[in-house]
Amino acid sequence: MKTFRVSVFAFILATFVGCTNNSIQPEATSVNLQFLHLVDNQPLELDNIKYTNAVGQAYSIKTVKYFVSRVTFHKTDGTDIAIPDIHYVDIRDEATLNYELSEKIPYGSYSGISFVYGLVPEDNVTGSLGLELDQLMEWPMMMGGGYHYMKLEGEYISDDVITFFNFHSGSLNGVAYEIHVDLPNSSFDANASNLNVGMAMEISNWFQNPVDWDFAYWGSGIMGNADAQATVQMNGTDVFSVNFPETAL
């Protein structure tokens, strides 16, 4: 009889423990990044020379391709949740404008989000990102190898002549110019199964603050120009802002 009682107690205990185990799974949020592209705080209109930079040159945007990597979520308790993903964005490929990170983040209070615009040297290795990106974003070995961080292309008008510009950034001859972005006003609470993070690129900021970009001065191609790469890096720190839309794009 005593044995029976012990057995019943053990069974009930096991049942409760089983239930408890199921219910104490750490709660976590899947994060969906949504990429938005603005000029002068309005949605970008491609292929239209309707914008004006800080030095008075009219310009258009035709191509926006770039890498976002190493997204990191900073908890208020001081711990960081770093996601190892590398994501490629092409404004003309809608499938790239939404991206669910490969790892969830635990519920809790977060003080902010940071990420790398481009690729850190450990990630910037020729041949490591697959055939299509090798071909689309190659940064030739002649200039140090790896990948373009960004291809931003369009037209500008100078002296009444319409000229293409290729605002391409990347690591040049072993010097890395990736941008470590701390998103302003990016604190949030993770307390639901999904979180949408809207990452908005204000394209006009590439061309100002601290350096007003003169297309004619820098020329149409800047890949081999270390000063230009450093300037792009400086101007890029305030290009992104963040919001937390309730619905996915």
């Binding site: 191509t63 292309e153 369009g154 002549v161 319409i162 000229t163 293409f164 510009f165 290729n166 191609g221």
Partner: peptide, 8 residues
Amino acid sequence: DPLMKQLS
């Protein structure tokens, strides 16, 4: 294509 950047 804007890659033809010396078009002008």
